[in-house]
Design a binder for these strands. Sequence first.
DNA 1: CTCCGTGCAAAGCATTTGCATCCAT
DNA 2: ATGGATGCAAATGCTTTGCACGGAG
Lengths: 140, 140
Amino acid sequence: MPAPLVPDAQLRVVGLTPTPQRRAVLALLIGRSRPLTAQEVHAELNHSVQHIGLTTVYRALHNLADAGLLHTFELDGQRAYRHCDTAPHQHLICTRCDTVTECPPDIVTSWLTELHQHTGFTPRPDRLDVKGICAACAST
Amino acid sequence: MPAPLVPDAQLRVVGLTPTPQRRAVLALLIGRSRPLTAQEVHAELNHSVQHIGLTTVYRALHNLADAGLLHTFELDGQRAYRHCDTAPHQHLICTRCDTVTECPPDIVTSWLTELHQHTGFTPRPDRLDVKGICAACAST
DNA sequence: CTCCGTGCAAAGCATTTGCATCCAT
DNA sequence: ATGGATGCAAATGCTTTGCACGGAG
């Protein structure tokens, strides 16, 4: 399997100019399982040494999401962003701790086919969201 | 099968005082497959004869959703409401026309069990949203 | 020089809240 | 009379836009 790309390389791959701000936003999101809102990203980055404008955070998140590097979620009525695999996958969203885990697609494909046959509805495999309780929360 | 309840009866069942405003909001939503935002509900009601305050629309929608009569969706960053069956079901959300169809639960229960066994994630059957293209849109 | 990204301030909007009024019990 | 429901206006808070500045090619 390929080595995970550092923020800089990921930006280049999708054709975005790597700037310090975009790098910082992307780096903050990489490895997080819980989506973050623009406000949260802005706050966290500014709590560390670097300064970054709120507007820039909003624009960077838009850019990265448009490029497919981030997926968007709705957290308490606000838009939140998570760094996701570019390969197809489904989202398992914990309503207790808000973390999102990616579900390998082979678990759902056959079911989606069945769903289509029963209902005539054509599901988009990458837009399947399952909410519930994650394993970590369930064990506490 | 029981006769469908008129708005007034549905309000009483969930313990909400039936007021003309709540009746109007609920009546507008009944039978619609596409969720409506508060602004849309307000606009539509006021285009007809009746007058209703925007704040009241927001409050009525909250009340009805809390009572379980309406389900909420995210439409273009805004909250939207749809009158749904109180029985468990899943939502098939068309990303083309925004309509939501209810999917009978028996199609998914076995798959959800399988998902749980594979991932340790405990899905909430009533919080499964599948996005894609509805049969009507697919045929055009 | 030119283009793109940034940052601040101001604007835009959906939603909520404060408060006085009104209605039904 | 009393508690809940309503409506307007104002406030709140997230997000976007206008515009000038700055840096890289």
